[in-house]
C-alpha cells in the first residue's frame, strides 16, 4: 500500500491522532482561522476597534464595581492594571471556548459535504481568538504606561503561559464541540458554564483571597493558575507555584482528553449533525 492509498472501514473505540494527515492539511487550518478573523468584524462600523474597546470597557466596569465600590484587594497595584492582567487570558479563553464549542454545529454543512480533519474546526476558532489576544496585549501596554507601572522581568514566561491558555481552551473546546453535536443541550450549558467559571477564576479578585487550604481546589480550575501566572509574569507579584503546577497538569490532562474524546466521537458527526 503506497502512501496515497486510503482504506475506509468501520473503526472502533479510541482512535489515534493522525499527525501526518494534520500536517498535510495544515494550510486549511490557517484558512479556516483566517476566515473566522475576516468574518468577525465584517459589516461592523467600528471594525477591529471592537477588539480594543471590549477589554477596555470590561476593565472600566470592573474597576468601578469591584475596585471602587466593593474595594477588592488588588495586591498593591492599581485595580485597573490588576484586573486587566486577569481579563487578558480570561476573555481569550471564554471567547475561544464559546466559539469552538459551537463551531461544529454552526458549520454542520461542511461536516456533511466534505472530508477534512474535523479537529481543525474548533482549533481554527481558538486560533482566530489569538488576533484579539495580541490586540489586547498591545492595549495593556498603553494601560501600563498610563499608570506608570513597569512590566517585570517575569515577562519572559509569558509565551509559555499563553501556550498553556491555548491548551486549556482547546481542551474545553474539543470536548464541548464534540458534545454539542450529539447533545444540543450544551448550547445552553456553555454560556452559563463560562459565566460560572469566571466567578471561580481569580479574574476580579486575587488568589490570596481564598484561604490557603482551599487553594488546591481553586487550582483544579486550570484558568485559576493561569490567570495568577499572568499577574506574576507581567506585574512581578510573587508566583503561587503550587497553584500554577496543579492548573498546568489539569490543563494538559484536559487537552489530551479533549483531543481523544473528539477523535472517538468524530466518525459519527456526519450522521447526527
Amino acid at each position: 500500500m503506497d502512501d496515497k492509498s486510503i482504506l475506509i472501514r468501520p473503526q472502533k473505540g479510541w482512535i489515534n491522532i493522525d499527525w501526518m494527515e494534520l500536517y498535510h492539511y495544515r494550510e486549511l487550518l490557517f484558512f479556516l482561522a483566517w476566515r473566522d478573523i475576516l468574518v468577525r468584524y465584517k459589516q461592523t462600523v467600528l471594525g477591529v476597534a471592537w477588539a480594543v474597546l471590549q477589554p477596555v470597557f470590561m476593565m472600566v466596569v470592573f474597576t468601578v464595581i469591584f475596585g471602587r465600590l466593593a474595594k477588592i484587594d488588588s495586591e498593591g497595584f492599581p485595580y485597573a492594571v490588576f484586573v486587566y492582567a486577569g481579563l487578558l487570558p480570561w476573555t481569550f479563553f471564554s471567547t475561544a471556548v464559546s466559539q469552538s464549542g459551537l463551531s461544529l454545529v454552526s458549520q454542520q454543512h461542511l461536516l456533511t459535504k466534505i472530508y477534512f480533519p474535523r479537529l481543525f474546526v474548533p482549533t481554527a476558532s481558538v486560533g482566530a481568538g489569538l488576533v484579539d489576544l495580541s490586540i489586547s496585549f498591545a492595549v495593556y501596554g498603553v494601560v501600563l504606561a498610563s499608570y506608570g507601572v513597569a512590566p517585570s522581568a517575569g515577562m519572559v514566561w509569558l509565551p509559555l503561559l499563553v501556550l498553556l491558555t491555548i491548551l486549556a481552551a482547546l481542551g474545553f473546546g474539543y470536548t464541548l464541540a464534540a458534545l454539542t453535536v450529539s447533545y444540543r443541550d450544551f448550547r445552553f450549558v456553555v454560556p452559563f458554564m463560562m459565566q460560572a467559571m469566571m466567578y471561580i477564576s481569580p479574574v476580579v479578585y486575587p488568589v490570596k483571597l481564598v484561604p490557603p487550604k482551599y487553594r488546591w481546589l481553586l487550582a483544579l480550575n486550570p484558568m485559576a493558575g493561569i490567570i495568577d501566572g499572568y499577574r506574576s509574569a507581567i506585574l512581578g507579584k510573587p508566583w503561587n507555584l503550587t497553584t500554577l503546577a496543579i492548573s498546568t497538569v489539569v490543563a494538559i490532562v484536559l487537552f489530551v482528553f479533549g483531543l481523544f474524546y473528539f477523535r472517538k466521537t468524530e466518525r459519527r458527526f456526519a450522521d447526527i449533525a
Binding site: D2, K4, S5, I6, L7, I8, R9, P10, Q11, R35, L38, V39, K42, Q43, H109, L110, L111, T112, K113, I114, Y115, R267, R268, A270, D271
Partner: peptide, 29 residues
C-alpha cells in the same frame, strides 16, 4: 464523510469529492 457500518473500501490516488458546489463558501467573504 461518514463511516461504513460493515465492509471496506480501498482507494488508490488523490481523491476529490464534490457533493455540492461551493462547499464552505462564506456569504460574508
Amino acid at each position: 464523510i461518514t463511516e461504513p457500518t460493515l465492509g471496506e473500501a480501498l482507494l488508490h490516488g488523490r481523491v476529490s469529492s464534490l457533493l455540492e458546489v461551493g462547499t464552505g463558501f462564506h456569504q460574508e467573504l
